[in-house]
């Protein structure tokens, strides 16, 4: 068992534990902070899976921007000290856990047959010749440039929509 596998299991354990804690904590602020921990450990897993640029984006966009937005809304609405817990009652626990386990069993059954190395490693030669950024940037700005521009329009529309929806009626 080499070092990268030990680090992989460490990050995986932290991700699973903190996402379980996120689901079960009553306070939404704690839930958001545990989600930050889970997203950071998934970013670490991205680095281990040779997706360095995506890991940087994960830290910047998810843990940086989106979670700040969540925390900001939680504190704006003053939900940090709700006395009434929002977790559903006793009847829902076996239902939710059972349905989650059924889904997990299905997904595991689907992915179980995959071999440990399903083909040749396509990413490592690309990373060695072009570097971490150009590997992703070249197809993004050549083959997928239309999708990239459409994504920019989507972000603009979402921004305008968020401003319009959240604006207080005069």
């Amino acid at each position: 068992m080499d070092l990268s596998q030990i680090v992989f299991y460490l990050f995986a354990g932290v991700a699973v534990a903190s996402s379980l804690l996120m689901v079960t904590r009553k306070n939404p602020v704690y839930a958001a902070l545990y989600l930050v921990v889970a997203l950071f450990s998934v970013a670490g897993l991205f680095v281990l899976l040779d997706a360095h640029f995506v890991a940087a984006l994960q830290v910047l966009i998810y843990a940086g921007a989106i979670l700040v937005l969540f925390l900001f809304v939680i504190m704006l609405l003053n939900l940090g000290h709700t006395l009434e817990p929002d977790i559903r009652g006793r009847f829902w626990w076996p239902f939710a856990a059972g349905l989650g386990l059924v889904l997990l069993a299905e997904l595991v059954a689907v992915t179980r047959g995959t071999p440990e190395r399903p083909g040749e490693d396509l990413l490592t030669p690309l990373l060695q010749t072009k570097g971490a950024v150009a590997t992703v940037a070249e197809p993004l700005f050549q083959s997928y440039v239309v999708a990239l521009e459409v994504t920019g329009v989507l972000l603009l529309v979402a921004m305008v929509g968020a401003v319009v929806i959240a604006k207080r009626k005069a």
């Binding site: 977790i87 349905l99 989650g100 889904l103 997990l104």
Partner: peptide
């Protein structure tokens, strides 16, 4: 798969 199942259970469990 595990993280996805935890997310689904969370959506069902929280209000």
């Amino acid at each position: 798969a595990v993280l996805f199942a935890i997310g689904v259970a969370g959506v069902l469990l929280r209000r």
